[in-house]
Simulated scan of single mutants.
Amino acid sequence: MSTSDDELAIRKLIATWLNATRAGDVDAVLSLMAPDAVFLVPGGPPMCGREAFAKPLRALLATHSIETLSEIQEIAIEGNMAYARTRLTVEVRPRDGSAAPVRRSGHTMSILRKQPSGAWLLTRDANLLGAPA
């Protein structure tokens, strides 16, 4: 796979992640990350591992829907490691309409590792989302 093909694969992973989240398909999201993935979020401890990420996402999607917009600003690939820098906007809406949607936006930095199969998986993610300005 050439670097161009790798970049396309990473862009596809990001799009698949957003679509699976929108559809509430947590298992599809989990399939895009390494088992030992680590997520950094403002104001909270790191979420270490797929299940640490899955549990709150499943709870949230039971009562809310999530819409996202991701603007990829940079992808760099070096061997079997890559990073993707994005500007992300997330809107979380209660399914029952009981409250106004919560909107967050900001930058993310994701580190991905290419697997022996050729697939890319997210291994580390830093999410700097806050209230929109």
Rank of each mutant, 00 (worst) to 15 (best):
T3V: 15
S4N: 08
S4W: 03
D5Y: 04
D6E: 12
D6A: 15
D6T: 10
D6R: 09
K12P: 02
L13G: 03
I14D: 00
A15Y: 01
T16E: 14
N19E: 15
N19Q: 14
A20R: 07
T21K: 07
T21R: 11
A23M: 04
A23F: 05
S31H: 12
L32A: 09
A34Q: 11
D36Q: 14
D36C: 14
F39E: 06
L40H: 14
L40G: 00
P42Y: 02
G44N: 09
G44Y: 06
G44D: 13
P45T: 03
P45H: 11
G49S: 07
F53L: 11
F53Q: 07
K55S: 08
K55E: 10
L57S: 01
R58H: 01
T63Q: 12
T63G: 12
E67S: 15
L69C: 04
E71L: 14
E71M: 11
I72M: 09
Q73K: 11
Q73P: 00
Q73G: 06
I75F: 02
I77G: 10
L88A: 08
T89I: 05
E91H: 06
R93W: 04
P94I: 04
R95M: 12
R95E: 01
D96K: 08
D96G: 05
D96N: 15
D96L: 13
S98K: 07
S98E: 05
A99V: 03
A99W: 05
A100V: 10
A100I: 09
R103P: 05
R104M: 13
G106T: 14
M109F: 07
L112Q: 02
R113I: 06
Q115P: 04
G118F: 02
W120K: 07
L121S: 05
T123Q: 10
R124Y: 06
D125F: 08
A126P: 00
A126T: 11
L128A: 14
G130N: 06
A133P: 15
